[in-house]
Amino acid sequence: MGRITLQKVQKKFGDVEVIPPLDLEINDGEFVVFVGPSGCGKSTLLRLIAGLEDVSGGQINIDGEDATMVPPAKRKLAMVFQSYALYPHMTVRKNIAFPMRMAKMDPAEQNKRIENAAAALNLTDYLDRRPGQLSGGQRQRVAIGRAIVREPAAFLFDEPLSNLDAALRVGMRMEIGELHKKLDTTMIYVTHDQVEAMTMADKIVVLRAGHIEQVGSPLELYRTPRNTFVAGFIGSPKMNLIEGAAAAEHNAQTIGIRPEHLDVSTTAGKWEGTVGVAEHLGSDTFIHIHGIEGCDPMTVRAGGEVSVKHGDTVFLTPQAEHLHRFDAEGLRIA
């Protein structure tokens, strides 16, 4: 079980309110990702749930019980840290065994769980090594192993992939996803990378300055961002936000159109602009177009074979059904 409810949870460091009172519900078995720019309070929120920080107000319930004052070890949560936080003086086996040793678990059971975790994480051959002798990805797996053996109510991940290189990150992303499917345990995952959020989450929580901007499934956020912040944050390349006359046409302060929802033509279209940089990715081409009023540059995602070059004049037409409208406060107009 792993149902976590935050009620009016608040955190202050001195006089600075890092997290204004917020409510959040995390259901059992859900993969929840906290995402937001650095300094948005997502790690603090995770640490509040973990019990590594005291809340300044509000209540945290885990499986229906008030855990607000419960020390971290007693919350039945396991955490994987950004730096992995492996104990450098212990072998992999001892690292994984540590939480069980602290819980004074029966040694036979300990061994069984270690073997299982090691098998699941491809660590069997490395059990007698020390963290210093492992690669980044292996360390990451040890940290996960240490979390798994406790059979926690929920896993907490604090930017676990940010110390890995790009290729490994993709691999670990899938492994963590697989793990979630297999264990079916609640996972809370903190990242600043919206790609990780989109690919892994059942539910994304977008945070800014301690506020929850929007909660929803990846596609919900993609399709119906509640405000301009979420609109700009979710999706890559970023949504084009256009102000001025073009927006006024739609009775909005700002309109947004994703790069993939713009049609490009060299002959005719709604907006005219000049090609700046064209990034050819093979499968796609990202074209940055200058000279369009209210949004400069505007980014277009075109097919991989599109041949435009710097200085060409092009015409863009937004797909009407994918147009997002926002009011003066930046909120979505339905």
């Binding site: 020390p71 840290f81 104990y87 939480p99």
Partner: peptide, 9 residues
């Protein structure tokens, strides 16, 4: 690392 230990009980 110390926080991990705390989490580990």
């Amino acid at each position: 690392i110390l926080e991990a230990a705390r989490m580990d009980g």
